[in-house]
């Protein structure tokens, strides 16, 4: 297989890339070039391999063009054949090589697309279920099995697959933790899926990549990968020191705010700056967030979280 013969060359490329990016200039935890999980790792490998294979058709142009111009410059004295306009073998090469390369790349593409399908659950322990809600301009993570939730931080255990179910309760957003794996859109009234696994304890940056208004550039969060024991400790801590995520609290989250502004509304939950821990979650919250867009009455602008017209109805149980 042609692809296999490139494996050897592929080994050289990290060197090339690290030169290109002045090795070490990439801070840990922000990019798939410094992967911390199997998905991001495979994506990096795939990037390198297709880059190298594509260079077969690209390098001849980059090298050949200056050489031709030099050799056939006007005063160069090379043979001039103004009527030469066709060569069978050359045509075959021009069409044939790209077709072959695209064949190889296409095969690789399909293989990788199936293997890294974000909806496919990653092998290993039974996955941790997390429900993700995109809001203006923050992320809410609900852990249905544990009954806790977190705003703008996603604690997760090392080595255990995580199965994310995502939706949005505002405009379309796009969820990505670069160092761990794929990004996926979140859309109101719809649910998308993403499967990840982190193999190294650490802090990984997660973002919304789809512009969503004034606070968009502050909509990042931290995926906190910890040992399974620490994760259990975190669940216990959230249960004890967090605040309840009930309808009133969710109404507050629905207002457009930056992570810092939102966290200020729920101080003292023991979460790091810009985040909030929730001790309990109203049952069926995630389903009701999706379900409200299917109601026969529609969603009035004053009920639309994230809309500038959003005017949440004052509820009895005020969180203050």
């Amino acid at each position: 297989m042609i692809a296999a013969s490139f494996r050897a060359h592929v080994r050289l490329v990290p060197l090339l890339l690290s030169v290109l990016f002045l090795a070490g200039c990439i801070p840990d935890g922000i990019s798939f070039l410094t992967p911390a999980g199997p998905v991001a790792d495979a994506q990096k490998e795939h990037l390198i391999s297709i880059t190298v294979i594509s260079l077969i058709v690209v390098l001849p142009v980059l090298i050949g063009t200056p050489l031709i111009i030099l050799r056939y410059r006007r005063k160069g004295g090379a043979r001039y054949r103004p009527d030469w306009a066709y060569s069978g073998p050359l045509e075959a090469l021009m069409w044939g090589v790209p077709v072959l390369i695209v064949g190889v790349l296409g095969w690789q593409l399909a293989k990788a697309t199936y293997e890294l399908d974000p909806t496919a659950v990653i092998a290993g322990d039974p996955p941790l279920e997390v429900q993700v809600v995109g809001l203006n301009w923050k992320w809410l993570f609900i852990y249905p099995e544990q009954g806790v939730a977190a705003l703008n931080a996603m604690p997760m255990p090392e080595g255990r697959p995580v199965s994310l179910h995502l939706t949005s309760d505002t405009v379309m957003q796009s969820f990505m933790i670069g160092a761990l794996g794929s990004q996926i859109y979140t859309m109101p009234g719809m649910e998308t899926q993403l499967n990840l696994r982190a193999d190294q304890v650490g802090q990984y940056r997660g973002v919304n990549t789809q512009f969503s208004g004034a606070g968009f550039d502050q909509q990042s969060f931290v995926a906190q990968v910890m040992t399974p024991e620490d994760f259990d400790d975190w669940v216990a801590a959230a249960r004890s020191s967090g605040t309840a995520l009930d309808a009133a609290a969710y109404t507050q989250l629905g207002q457009s705010s930056t992570p810092a502004e939102a966290a200020a509304m729920f101080a003292g939950t023991g979460a790091p700056a810009g985040s909030v821990w929730f001790s309990e979650v109203e049952t069926g919250l995630f389903g009701s967030i999706i379900g409200k867009y299917m109601s026969a009455e529609g969603v009035a602008d004053s009920d639309q979280t994230g809309s500038p017209s959003y005017q949440p109805v004052q509820s009895e149980g005020d969180v203050e």
Binding site: F32, A40, A42, Q43, H46, L47, I50, T51, S54, L105, Q108, L109, A112, T113, L116, P118, S174, M176, G178, G181, S182, Q183, I184, T209, Q210
Partner: peptide
């Protein structure tokens, strides 16, 4: 590179 959904999942947007 971008034509590969796998990589696009990382560099899209």
């Amino acid at each position: 590179i971008l034509a590969n959904p796998t990589v696009d999942y990382q560099v899209h947007n």
